[in-house]
Measured scan of single mutants.
Amino acid sequence: TTVHLNGVTYTFPNPEEARKFVEKLAKTLNLKVEVHNGTYHIE
């Protein structure tokens, strides 16, 4: 599972880890999250 954040790409072997990371980040920084083909894009 891949996460794109400010031009940096993070790869998680575990989709659940990626989801938790994204949710925590989005909540902390009040960001918008979009998912395209299983890839998270955070703005």
Rank of each mutant, 00 (worst) to 15 (best):
T1L: 06
T1H: 07
T1M: 09
T2L: 13
T2K: 14
T2A: 12
T2E: 13
V3G: 00
V3E: 00
V3R: 00
V3W: 01
V3S: 00
V3I: 04
V3Y: 01
H4S: 07
H4D: 05
H4W: 12
N6I: 09
N6V: 06
N6E: 09
N6R: 08
G7A: 05
G7Y: 08
G7T: 05
G7D: 10
G7P: 01
G7F: 07
V8R: 12
T9Q: 11
T9N: 07
T9I: 14
T9Y: 12
Y10R: 05
Y10K: 05
Y10S: 02
Y10T: 04
T11V: 12
T11F: 11
T11R: 12
F12K: 00
F12S: 00
P13E: 10
P13N: 09
P13C: 15
N14P: 01
N14G: 10
P15T: 07
P15A: 11
P15F: 12
E16W: 06
E16K: 07
E17S: 13
E17R: 10
E17L: 13
R19T: 06
R19S: 06
K20N: 10
K20M: 10
K20T: 08
F21W: 13
V22P: 00
K24T: 11
L25F: 03
L25E: 01
L25V: 06
L25N: 01
A26E: 08
A26D: 07
K27M: 08
T28C: 15
T28V: 13
T28Y: 14
T28P: 01
T28I: 14
T28Q: 12
L29W: 03
L29N: 07
L29C: 15
N30M: 04
N30E: 08
L31F: 06
L31T: 05
L31H: 04
K32D: 03
K32G: 03
V33M: 04
V33K: 00
V33C: 14
V33G: 01
V33W: 13
V35N: 04
V35F: 14
V35K: 04
V35S: 03
V35G: 01
V35R: 02
H36D: 04
H36Q: 06
H36T: 05
H36L: 12
G38D: 05
G38R: 01
G38Q: 02
G38Y: 02
T39C: 15
T39I: 15
T39Y: 08
Y40E: 03
H41K: 03
H41A: 02
I42W: 03
I42V: 13
I42R: 01
E43F: 15
E43V: 15
E43Q: 12
E43W: 15
